[in-house]
Amino acid sequence: MSVLRDIIERRVRRERIRRCGPTGEGVEASPSYRGRVGLKRELCIGCSLCEKDCPSAAIKIVQDEKGKRPVFFLDRCMFCGQCKESCPTKAIYMSSEPELPVFDRKELEVR
């Protein structure tokens, strides 16, 4: 019976209860959220520390015209942020995009 008081109080106070849509619309992630990984190519020096430190082997170092650079495979990534911490030049960043569902696995490679 005691919860009755709670229900009436909160409903009377019109406490704002955050609701999102049926497929996740309206959910805002805070700016500190660890979301999709990205690379600032100009800062990358090709040291390969990110590949060594990644716990889920989601980073592969490839050669491109400017030298070595990482490719992130987001289907293996666990969004821990270790690559961002290991990078000595702060070339890796994590945006705050919360939902990453895709229909094609190729979209999950960050080249």
Partner: peptide
């Protein structure tokens, strides 16, 4: 949800904080 929001603001994720 209050503490989950605090954890997200502090560490970047609601549960697995790293």
């Amino acid at each position: 949800e209050i503490t989950l929001g605090l954890m997200e603001a502090l560490s970047g994720n609601r549960i697995t904080s790293s």
